[in-house]
Structures are given as C-alpha cells and as structure tokens.
Simulated assay, not measured.
Amino acid sequence: MTARIAHLSDIHFGANDPRVVAATEAWLLKHQPDLVIISGDLTQRARVAQFREAAAYVNRIRAMGFPLLCVPGNHDVPLWNVARRFLSPLGRYRRFIDNDLCPWFESASVAVLGINTARSLTFKDGRINDDQMRMIEDRFAHVAPDKTRILVTHHPLFSMPIGKGGELSEAVGRHDDAVMAMAGAGVHVALAGHFHQTYAQAARKMVEHAGPALVMQAGTATSTRFRNDERQSFNWLHVHRNNDVELQVIAWTGESFQRGNHIRYGFDGREWRGVPVGHDSPSAKAASR
C-alpha cells in the first residue's frame, strides 16, 4: 500500500500570499492526500489575528476530510510579548491549532510522529529534550517493521546546506543525542522546514551514525519571505513499502502550482540512493494522482 503525503511548511499567516494559500487548497482537493503535514511556522509573529487565519486554513483542510498533523515553529512563539513568550510560549498555538505538541498518526503503511522543537529561550533555533527523545523511541518501538517511520520537526535535526555558497546551517540543540534517539527508533524519513528551501538527502551523508534516515526539507508553502529566490513550494511524497519513497517538489510558478523535480529514493540496506523519475515513467504517472 502506498501512502500519499503532502508536506507543507512555513505558511506564515501574517506574511502570506492569499492567492497561493487558495492554490494549495485547490491542489490538495484535486490530489487527495492520505495525510497533510505542516511542519511549523503557521504564523509570522504569533498574533491572535494571524492564528485565527491559520486556524481557518487548517480547519478547511480538515473539512476536506484529510488527516492533518501539525507541529509549531519558532515564529509561533511570541517575539515581542516577553511575558507571554516565557509564561505561555505556545498558548495561542494550543488554543487555535492543536493542543497536542507532539501529534501521532498511524495507518496501514506509515507511522508519523511530530515533535515540537520551538523554544522560548531561542529566537530562531530549535531544541529537543530528554522527554521528547524518549518519546521518539517509545512511540516507534511498537510499530510493525513493515511500516515506514516518519519523524516531523520544524527545525532540521541535521545541519542543512543553505545559501548558494554551500554553507551549512546550525543543527537543532542537543543534535547528537537527537540523532542517536532517531537512529535507535529506526526512523526512516525525517521531515522538517524552517529554512524556506527544498532539500532531500540521506542523513548518513551528513551525520555519522545517523541511522537509515532520509532527510527531507520543505520550502515555504505560502509565505512571501523567500530565500535565494526560491518561490513557494511544498513536497508531495509517495511512501511505498520496503523503504521506497518518492519525493516530488510542487512549485509555484506565479500563476499555479506545477510539478517540479521528482526523485525516487530506495534504501539498499546501508544507504539511500536517489534516481530521477522521468515524466513518462510508471512512477511519474502514479505520482500524478
């Protein structure tokens, strides 16, 4: 069985393009994902009006009948309201989006865990704590071996290439411990956002002892805040059995969302290998659904 997953991130209500927002909804309605993931930064500055807009958006997605898994991002923590930032950093997120900061989704083919990496003590960087690392190991411990294990965070657990010069980002706080927990839990795919750039790579090529994990980063789906001239985009995943994952970037052209780069990743027992998928291949035709 194949699971079709739409992975959106950094929708930034308060700094978003309404036309692009409507286009994401139309695309989801047409292509009928089995799960929609939003990996953080639902708002620009965690204001009530912005959360109301974000809540209306996620409720429209839910009303379409799609399961939805969200995690907060650093922009969902108030920046200028110091009292709220430290006393109730994600109070508005809990009120408007989801009271569960570490949501879980499981189907016949995938098991997906979201982990909150947003913290009040940092303005943009993320962190993961001991309880969350134990949760990663505990939740995936009871998952059937033939299911694909997916971990969702806002901040990438790994250093990611950013910018045109190939420089690397800062990894999430307690990075080494997080990687060990993920490897111990047998996570196959790690999804994140934060940098407004699309990127997919085998974790083994970036971090030693990362385990058999494929790291996929989503661009910004609806924000007007671009990085390196990269326009709005989101990821369309087809997760097959036996560690076989297709990733296609769905990119905004200025008029509509169109299919972009499409790669099929397979795990050979030691590392992931990606093969570009042509438009006329069976995989490409299947992904069009």
Rank of each mutant, 00 (worst) to 15 (best):
S9T: 11
R94C: 11
H279Q: 13
E25Y: 07
R134H: 08
L247W: 10
E106G: 09
M182G: 09
Q44R: 05
R241K: 11
I38W: 12
A210Q: 06
S256R: 13
L35D: 00
L35M: 08
G278Q: 14
A185S: 06
R127N: 12
V179G: 01
I162M: 14
L42T: 06
V82P: 00
R134A: 15
R259A: 15
L157D: 03
F51R: 01
R225A: 10
R62W: 11
R84A: 15
V215I: 14
Y93P: 00
S223F: 11
D138E: 12
A23V: 01
F158E: 02
N243R: 13
G166R: 05
H155E: 07
M180L: 11
G126R: 00
H31N: 07
A213C: 15
D268L: 06
Y93A: 00
D10A: 14
H7M: 13
V71E: 00
Y93E: 09
F195L: 12
F195I: 02
A183V: 04
A141S: 11
A185F: 01
R264D: 14
D130P: 07
M180W: 08
T224L: 03
E255D: 14
S233Y: 05
D131C: 02
C70A: 08
M135S: 08
K124A: 14
V143W: 12
E106T: 12
E271V: 13
T253D: 15
D268Y: 06
V172E: 05
D244A: 03
R60G: 08
A46G: 03
F96C: 12
P33K: 06
D41R: 04
M182N: 01
N129M: 00
L214K: 01
Q132S: 07
Y265F: 15
I5C: 03
C70P: 02
P78R: 04
H155S: 06
L68H: 07
L87A: 10
T148R: 13
H7N: 10
R84N: 12
V143T: 15
I162T: 07
Q201G: 06
N74S: 01
D138S: 11
D138K: 13
R134T: 01
A49V: 06
E246I: 03
V187Y: 05
V58M: 08
P67H: 10
G193S: 02
A221Y: 03
R134V: 09
H194L: 04
M182E: 12
T43D: 05
G91T: 07
S281R: 02
M135W: 06
E106A: 10
